[in-house]
């Protein structure tokens, strides 16, 4: 799953650093993720994993790191987490 998440961050995140250099727990906002890019990432994740983030997950914290994103997806779609 994290491979897909990394790919989507690369595609939507518009980060000034190479995705390979990011650790799973690194703060994406501190790395340069803007609010608007986070929205694009959120929509990209929904499409890729065929999920819909509930209202309570639509905040900064949910998309703050690769780990945070993975745990959100694992929570709303446990069967996708093993993919």
């Amino acid at each position: 799953m994290k491979v897909i998440i990394r790919k989507l961050i690369e595609q939507h995140g518009r980060l000034p650093v190479a995705i390979a250099t990011l650790s799973d727990d690194q703060d994406l906002y501190a790395t340069g993720l803007t609010s608007f890019a986070a929205v694009q990432l959120m929509l990209g994740l929904e499409e890729a994993f065929d999920v819909e983030f509930p209202e309570r997950m639509l905040n900064r914290k949910s998309f703050a790191s690769i780990d945070a994103i993975a745990s959100c997806i694992a929570e709303i779609a446990p069967q996708k987490a093993v993919a």
Binding site: S35, A38, V39, M42, L43, E55, L58, N59, R60
Partner: peptide, 14 residues
């Protein structure tokens, strides 16, 4: 919209 929900939450958080 839903994207807006997230922008709104971000704006409040910050």
């Amino acid at each position: 919209g839903r994207a807006g929900r997230m922008l709104a939450n971000n704006q409040r958080d910050q």
